[in-house]
């Protein structure tokens, strides 16, 4: 069975972000980078499937600058067999359609039986790439899965809907699934597997070789949202509350002027 898992390297969301000089993205220096959390579940599920089906081969793919190879090595240490890096220093400027097109261009003649992606990335959060890849390749896709099983060429999954409701969905392979948080428990790479990962194949090709479309959108401006003032709870009896409220309205607003 041939399996592909697509991952993205994202900054740690607790980072202190700065807006770049062009004002259209965040500065990528001095950030701690990690695997997109949704993709960790995708990698774990792909590795579990590889372990279930004898003779499987699992490729991890990522798009971005050289530093994304560090995140790919974690996926290799978790159990992926080989890595395919689409080198692109400007990947943050690519829109979901361009990213999906590159993945589809890579995957179209490889005969993957199953493709795993995260349901969305933590930084851009578009939740589009997985489904776009499937549509481009004319594959069935199941999005936002929180349970996965595979038997007799058929995927059975549970989709997470709102309000705690889940939906059972199944489809035949080849197919693509996008993974929601909580799908499984991503494993920690062991030290021996980290060492083994260093010897696994990791190919890199320039994005230009796979990018054959133009983007449909761009970030015109990025900025920090205005901080909204905190609420104020007044306590006491009604007469005191009325006095306090009138005082605040006089001091802070012009409604009583």
């Amino acid at each position: 069975m041939k399996i592909l898992v697509c991952i993205k390297q994202v900054p740690d969301m607790e980072s202190k972000f700065k807006v770049n000089a062009d004002g259209n993205w965040y500065v990528d220096a001095d950030l701690a980078w990690r695997m997109n959390e949704y993709d960790e579940y995708a990698v774990e599920q792909a590795v579990q499937l590889k372990e279930q089906v004898d003779g499987s081969d699992l490729t991890v793919l990522s798009i971005g600058p050289q530093r994304v190879q560090e995140t790919m090595k974690k996926a290799l240490a978790m159990g992926c067999d080989r890595g395919f890096h689409i080198a692109d220093d400007e990947s943050c400027k690519k829109d979901p359609f361009e990213i999906a097109s590159m993945i589809a261009e890579f995957a179209k003649d490889k005969g993957f039986d199953l493709i795993f992606t995260g349901m969305q990335s933590q930084d851009r959060g578009s939740a589009q790439v997985g489904v776009l890849v499937a549509e481009t390749l004319n594959l069935p896709s199941i999005s936002t899965i929180i349970d996965f099983s595979f038997a007799s060429g058929k995927v059975s999954a549970k989709r997470e809907l709102e309000g705690g409701i889940k939906a059972n969905v199944s489809c035949a392979t080849p197919a693509l699934v996008t993974c929601q948080l909580g799908l499984n428990t991503p494993r920690y790479p062991t030290l021996p597997n980290i060492m083994k990962a260093k010897r696994k194949e990791l190919l890199s090709i320039p994005a230009e070789e796979l990018l054959k479309v133009e983007g449909k959108q761009e970030t015109a401006r990025i900025y920090f949202p205005e901080k909204k003032g905190g609420g104020l709870v007044l306590e006491g009896d009604a007469n005191d509350l009325a006095d306090q409220l009138i005082k605040i309205l006089k001091e802070k607003t012009g409604v009583l002027a």
Partner: peptide, 9 residues
């Protein structure tokens, strides 16, 4: 943490 204005081509 951030907002972005998006321009559709």
């Amino acid at each position: 943490k951030l907002r972005r204005e998006v321009k559709a081509k």
